[in-house]
Design a protein around this nucleic acid. Structure first.
Length: 1004
RNA sequence: GCCCGAGUGGUGGAAUGGCAGACACGGCGGACUCAAAAUCCGCUGCCGCAAGGUGUGUGGGUUCGAAUCCCACCUCGGGCACCA
C-alpha cells in the first residue's frame, strides 16, 4: 500500500508542477503542486532531522541538543495494530490532531516528544498464519512498513528513532522484565503498595506476619514455604473459568460464544472449564486506582466508567447459619455451617425472606437436602426452566444437578441478557435470619454470580427488584423494611425512607439504619463491615503463539520460578504449524501452540541455586496483547537502552511535571502531557496501564504515580454504508445517487451510517485523498469536519471547501500567472526585511483588528484542540484579505507572516513552502507563534441588540466606553424608531444591561 | 433491562444562560468569457408580497432572557460484568 506518489521524481523547488490543461493557471495550488511541495518538505524534514527530539542524556541527546533545555512536552497517541488492510481516513484523525498540537507547542517554545510505535502482537497475524503458514513476524513487518509509508505521507512530525514495535525482541525483553518485577513483588496491606517479595519472606520468617495455615515458618518444608509465598505474589496462578472450545482448540471471549453455547466461528460446542491461568492482583490496587483518578485531567465520563468498573461498595458481610432439620435429615447437615453473604443494604436484613447461592457455590452440595420439605411447590422443585419436567424433580439433589446442567450451557453474557426471566431451584434446606431468628429457604439461581461478593445473597424482595421478581415467580414472602413515599405503587422500593418492620431500626433513614445494624451485627458476632469491589483480578495468560513468552520455568515441584533478569529475553521460538490442537472430545484440555516447539519446552539453566545446570519445564502460555501496550510510552523515552527499561534521567525529564494540562483544578501528578485515543479503551487498556505504572512507581522504577496526566478521546469517522435487498453490504464507492435514490449496479440499495471500516465496505483510503488534493487538504478537512471528540460522517464531496481555502491563501501570496510573490521579489536570507519594504503600505485599522482577534481566538482554539473553529477563523481572515489583495495586488507582510505561522500546524508543508518563498532560510517549525496585542482588539464603537421583553426589537450603536452605562443605552434605545414604538404608553418595569452584549427592557 | 453520549437549515457543523444558524458544502443570481470551466461579488432556516410571525427531537418547568439549566418522554449511536 505504498503510495505511488513517492516514486515521482522531485522537481526543483521553484518550478511547481505545471498543469496547462483546461487553462488552469500555471502557478495555481493544484493537487500536483501540493504533492510536489509535500514530498519535498517531507524529505527535507527527514534529512534535517527536524523532529528528532533530544533526550537530556544518552544516545538520543543529539542532534538538536539545545532544545533539551526547554520545557518538555510529551504528546502520545494510542498506537495502532498494524493491520494488513492498511489505513483508512478514520485512523489518522487522532494522529493529525496530536501532530497539530505538537507543532503548535513547538512554536510556543516546548521540546516536544511525539513518536509512533506499533502494537503488533495479536490475533489477526496468528490467524493469517494458521490459514497460510506465513510466519506472523513476516506479515507483521510488512504491514508495519506499509503503515509507516502511509503515515509519513500525512506529514506527521514524529521522531522516527523512537517508534518501537511490541514484537521487537529488544522491546519484549523489557515486557518480560516488568513481569519478573511484578512476580517478585506483593501488595503489602499495611501500605497498599507493591513491595519486594523478600520483605514478605522476612516478615513470615520472623513471625511478624502469620502464615495462612497458622503454622510456624520454621515448621514449613521448603516447598510449603514456596507455596505460601507464591499465593501472595502480585501475579499468581489460579483456576479460572474459561469458555473452552475443543473444536477450535482455543479459549473464547464471551462475545465469541452464541446464545446456544456454541462458537461463533464454526459452531462448535463451548464448555465452561476451570483452567490454571496467570492472574494479576489488580484488585489489591482498587482503592488507589479509584482515588488517584481525581487528580487526572481526563474527561469526566471516562473517569466515571473507571469508577463504575472498579465498583467500590461498602456494606456488610452477614452469616446465616444453616438449620439442621430432622424433617429433612441429611447426615452431614448441621448447624456448624453458615452461609456468608455480602450486602450493601444490611439495614434490610429484617426483610430477608430467602437466600440464593450461585449454582457453583461450594456449600451447595453440603447443604442440599435429600428430600423436599412437605408442601414444596413444583416451581421451587425445578419446574420452571427449559428442559425440566413441568412438575419439578423428585429430590433436591436431582433438581440441583439438572439446574447446574442448564446453567453450564449458558454463557455469562447470556445469563445477564435474559434478565426478565428468573430461574432457580430450592435446595430443600433452610438458614436462620440472624436479625429475626426465623428460618429462610435457600435457593440456587443463576442471577447470583460466584465472582461477585461471596457468591451468595440474602434476598430482600421488598427492596430489590430482582429479588422481588424472583419472589413473585416462586411464591416467596415479601416484607418491606423501608417505607416507600406516599403514592408508591411499584414493587421493590430501592429509595430512601424510614425503616419499618425492623425492630430497633424502625424510623431510622437508610444511612443511619445501616450504621446501627452493622454495629449490632459486629457486637453479636453475626457479621462485620466490609468493602467489596466489582473489579476482578486480571486474567493474564493466553493459549496463543503470537505473544510474549512468560519468563517463567517450573522445576519438578511444579511451582513457578522467574527467569532471572540477566537471562532475558526468553525468545519466542519459531514453529511451523500455528494451528491450535482441536478435538471432538469435550474433556480434551487446551494445549498452547508453544507445546509444538519441542526443543524449547524444556531448558537447561543454572538459576544460581548452587545446583548447577538443571532441567526446567517452560511456561507455554503467552501474555495478552495488553502487556505490550501497558508500558510502550516509557520505552519511547529511551528505545535502545540495553541496560534498563528507561534511563532514570530521561524518564524524569519527560514524565515529571506535566505542563500540557490546562485545567487549573487538577493536581498535576505528572506523566504524559496529552494522550489521545478512542473511547473504546476507556476501561481495560487505561486501567491496566495505570496498574502497571503504579507497580513500577512503588518499586522505584518510575517517578510519577500516574502515567497519563491529560486524556482526550477523539470520535469515530462514520460513513454512509449501503445494503442491497439481501441485507449484504455493497461497495459504497460504487453507489450513485439518482433523484433521491441510491443505486448500485442499477439496483436500489438502502443507506445507513456506521463506523468506517472494511466490514461495512465504506472505507476511504487516505492515499486517494492525498493524490487528489494533497495531505495538507486532508489534514485540514479531517480537523474541519467538526469537534474532535464527536463522531461525524465522512463526505468526500465537502473536501473541496478546504482545498479552495488553501488555493485562496496561495493566491494571496503568489500570482497564479507569473508565480511572483504579491509582495514583490522574494528576498534572500534577510527576506523578512525585504518583504517588509514592499508591504510598506501597512495595515488598515480593520485588518489590524481582525488579525489580532484571529490570533487570540486561534491560539485559544489550538490550545484546547478545537481545530474546527480555529480553521473557520483563519478562513474569515483570508476572506477579508481576498478583495484587498485582488484590488491592490499587494499583501502586507504584517498580516502575511502571522497568517502563515498560524496556519502552519494544520497545513505544515503548504506553510513551510510559503515561508521559504517569503525569503526565510530557516524553517518555521520552531518560529514563535504570533501573539495577539489586546490593545489592538478593542473596538471604538459597539453595536448592541435591544430587547423588549426578551425579543430583539432593534440595534443601537454606542461608544465602547459607554456600553455598560444604563442611561446612555436607554437614551440610545429611545432614539431608535423601532424600539421607541414598543415603549410608547407602557411602563418600564426593569432594565437588564449586559455590558457590550445586550440591553433588555422589561415592560408591562 | 441498566449505564454513557448525541439530537440545531437541503448537508457537515457554530453558538454552554444574552442577536440561533459563524465557517464550509450544496443551491440561486450577477460580473468576467464568443462560450464553458475556474475566479470574483451577492443571496440562501421556514411561512409570508409585505408588515410580521415562527424556529434548536417532543411536552412541561426555572429565568427579564433557554439550543444551553431542571423534570418527563421519543429517536439514534456506543458500552454492559443481574453492582446484591
Amino acid at each position: 500500500m505504498v503510495n505511488e506518489q513517492v516514486d515521482e521524481p522531485a522537481t526543483a523547488p521553484t518550478v511547481p508542477g505545471a498543469d496547462t490543461e483546461d487553462g488552469i493557471p500555471l502557478h495555481r495550488y493544484t493537487a500536483a503542486l501540493a504533492n510536489e511541495i509535500e514530498l519535498r518538505w517531507q524529505d527535507h524534514w527527514d534529512a534535517e532531522r527536524t523532529f528528532w527530539s533530544p533526550n537530556p542524556t544518552g544516545p538520543l541527546s543529539e542532534p538538536n541538543a539545545e532544545r533539551a533545555a526547554l520545557a518538555k512536552l510529551y504528546v502520545l497517541d494510542m498506537f495502532p495494530y498494524p493491520s494488513g488492510i492498511g489505513l483508512h481516513v478514520g485512523h489518522p484523525l487522532g494522529y493529525i490532531a496530536t501532530d497539530i498540537w505538537s507543532r503548535f507547542k513547538r512554536m510556543r517554545g516546548f521540546n516536544v516528544l511525539h513518536a509512533m510505535g506499533y502494537d503488533a502482537f495479536g490475533l489477526p497475524a496468528e490467524q493469517f498464519a494458521v490459514q497460510t503458514g506465513t510466519h506472523p513476524r513476516i506479515t507483521t513487518e510488512s504491514n508495519i512498513a506499509s503503515m509507516k509509508a502511509q503515515l509519513r505521507r500525512l506529514g506527521l512530525g514524529h521522531d522516527p528513532r523512537r517508534g518501537i514495535s511490541t514484537t521487537d525482541v529488544g522491546y519484549y525483553r523489557w515486557t518480560q522484565w516488568i513481569f519478573v518485577q511484578i512476580f517478585n513483588s506483593w501488595c503489602d496491606p499495611a501500605s497498599g503498595r507493591a513491595r519486594p517479595i523478600a520483605e514478605l519472606e522476612a516478615q513470615l520468617a520472623d513471625g511478624s506476619r502469620p502464615t495462612r495455615s497458622g503454622r510456624a515458618w520454621s515448621d514449613l518444608s521448603p516447598l510449603e514455604r514456596r507455596i505460601e509465598i507464591d499465593a501472595r505474589r502480585m501475579v499468581y496462578r489460579s483456576e479460572m473459568p474459561v469458555n473452552w472450545c475443543p473444536g477450535l482448540g482455543t479459549v473464547l471471549a464471551n462475545e465469541e460464544v452464541t446464545a446456544e453455547g456454541r462458537s461463533d466461528r464454526g459452531n462448535f460446542p463451548v464448555y465452561q472449564r476451570p483452567l490454571k491461568q496467570w492472574v494479576m492482583r489488580i484488585t489489591s490496587f482498587a482503592d488507589r486506582l479509584l482515588g488517584d483518578l481525581d487528580a487526572l485531567d481526563w474527561p469526566e465520563p471516562i473517569k466515571l466508567m473507571q469508577r463504575n468498573w472498579i465498583g467500590r461498595s461498602e456494606g456488610a458481610e452477614i452469616a446465616f447459619p444453616v438449620v439442621a432439620d430432622d424433617a429433612v435429615a441429611d447426615g452431614g447437615t448441621g448447624s456448624d455451617i453458615a452461609i456468608s453473604v455480602f450486602t450493601t443494604r444490611p439495614d434490610t436484613v429484617f426483610g430477608a425472606t430467602y437466600m440464593v447461592l450461585a449454582p457453583e457455590h461450594p456449600l451447595v452440595d453440603e447443604i442440599t437436602a435429600s428430600a423436599w420439605p412437605p408442601g414444596t411447590p413444583s416451581i421451587q422443585r425445578g419446574g420452571g426452566f427449559a428442559g425440566s419436567p413441568a412438575d419439578g424433580h423428585r429430590t433436591p439433589r436431582e433438581a440441583v444437578a439438572a439446574y447446574r446442567d442448564y446453567t453450564n450451557a449458558r454463557s455469562e453474557i447470556d445469563r445477564q441478557a435474559e434478565s426478565k426471566l428468573k430461574t432457580g431451584v430450592f435446595v430443600g434446606a433452610f438458614a436462620t435470619n440472624p436479625a429475626t431468628g426465623g428460618p429462610v429457604p435457600v435457593f440456587i439461581a443463576d442471577y447470583v454470580l460466584m465472582g461477585y461478593g461471596t457468591g451468595a445473597i440474602m434476598a430482600v424482595p421488598g427492596q430489590d427488584e430482582r429479588d422481588w421478581e424472583f419472589a413473585e415467580d416462586f411464591g416467596l414472602p415479601i416484607v418491606r423494611t423501608v417505607e416507600p413515599f406516599a403514592g408508591w405503587e411499584g414493587g421493590a422500593f430501592t429509595g430512601d425512607g424510614p425503616a419499618i418492620n425492623s425492630g430497633f431500626l424502625d424510623g431510622l433513614r437508610v444511612d443511619a439504619a445501616k450504621a446501627r445494624i452493622i454495629d449490632w451485627l459486629e457486637a453479636e458476632g453475626h457479621g462485620r463491615r466490609r468493602v467489596t469491589y466489582k473489579l476482578r483480578d486480571w486474567l493474564f495468560s493466553r493459549q496463543r503463539y503470537w505473544g510474549e513468552p512468560f519468563p517463567i520455568v517450573y522445576d519438578e515441584t511444579g511451582q513457578p520460578i522467574a527467569v532471572p533478569a540477566s537471562m532475558l529475553p526468553v525468545e519466542l521460538p519459531d514453529i511451523d504449524d500455528f494451528m491450535p490442537k482441536t478435538s471432538d472430545d469435550p474433556d480434551a484440555l487446551p494445549e498452547p501452540p508453544l507445546a509444538r516447539a519441542t526443543e524449547w519446552t524444556t531448558a537447561e539453566l543454572d538459576l544460581g541455586e548452587g545446583a548447577g545446570l538443571r532441567t526446567y519445564r517452560r511456561e507455554l502460555n503467552t501474555m495478552p496483547q495488553w502487556a505490550g501496550s501497558c508500558w510502550y510510552y516509557l520505552r519511547y523515552l529511551d528505545p535502545d537502552n540495553a541496560d534498563a527499561l528507561v534511563d532514570p534521567a530521561n524518564e524524569a525529564y519527560w514524565m515529571v511535571g506535566a505542563t500540557g494540562s490546562k485545567s487549573a483544578g487538577s493536581a498535576n501528578v505528572g506523566g504524559v502531557d496529552l494522550y489521545v485515543g478512542g473511547v473504546e479503551h476507556a476501561v481495560l487498556h487505561l486501567l491496566y496501564a495505570r496498574f502497571w505504572h503504579k507497580i513500577l512507581f512503588d518499586l522505584g522504577h518510575v517517578s510519577t504515580p500516574e502515567p497519563f496526566q491529560r486524556l482526550f478521546n477523539q470520535g469515530y469517522i462514520q460513513a454512509a454504508a449501503f445494503t442491497d435487498e439481501r441485507g449484504s453490504y455493497v461497495e459504497a464507492e460504487k453507489v450513485v445517487e439518482q433523484q433521491g435514490q441510491f443505486l448500485y449496479d442499477g439496483e436500489p440499495v438502502n443507506r445507513e451510517f456506521g463506523k468506517m471500516g472494511k466490514s461495512l465496505k465504506n472505507a476511504v483510503a487516505p492515499d486517494e485523498i492525498c493524490r487528489d488534493y494533497g495531505a495538507d487538504t486532508l489534514r485540514l478537512y479531517e480537523m474541519y469536519m467538526g469537534r474532535l471528540e464527536q463522531s461525524k460522517p465522512w463526505n468526500t464531496r465537502d473536501i473541496v471547501g478546504v482545498h479552495r481555502f488553501l488555493q485562496r491563501v496561495w493566491r494571496l501570496f503568489v500570482n497564479e500567472q507569473t508565480g511572483a510573490l504579491n509582495m514583490g521579489a522574494s528576498g534572500d536570507g534577510a527576506g523578512s526585511a525585504a518583504a517588509s519594504a514592499v508591504g510598506a503600505a501597512g495595515l488598515d485599522g480593520g485588518t489590524m483588528r481582525l488579525l489580532h482577534k484571529t490570533i487570540a481566538a486561534v491560539t485559544d482554539d489550538l490550545e484546547d484542540l478545537r481545530f474546527n473553529t480555529a480553521i473557520a477563523k483563519l478562513i474569515e481572515l483570508t476572506n477579508h484579505l481576498t478583495p484587498i489583495v485582488s484590488v491592490t495586488g499587494q499583501l502586507p507582510v504584517e498580516v502575511a507572516e502571522p497568517l502563515v505561522l498560524m496556519l502552519a500546524p494544520m497545513a505544515p508543508h503548504f506553510c513551510e513552502e510559503l515561508w521559504s518563498r517569503l525569503g526565510h532560510a530557516e524553517p518555521l517549525a520552531f518560529k514563535a507563534f504570533p501573539v495577539a496585542d489586546p490593545a489592538l482588539i478593542v473596538e471604538d464603537l459597539v453595536e448592541m441588540p435591544v430587547q423588549i421583553n426578551g425579543k430583539v426589537r432593534g440595534q443601537i450603536t454606542v461608544a465602547s466606553s459607554q456600553a455598560g452605562d444604563e442611561a446612555t443605552l436607554l437614551a440610545a434605545a429611545r432614539a431608535n424608531d423601532r424600539v421607541a414604538g414598543h415603549l410608547d404608553g407602557v411602563l418600564v418595569r426593569k432594565v437588564i444591561v449586559v455590558p457590550g452584549r445586550l440591553l433588555n427592557i422589561v415592560v408591562g
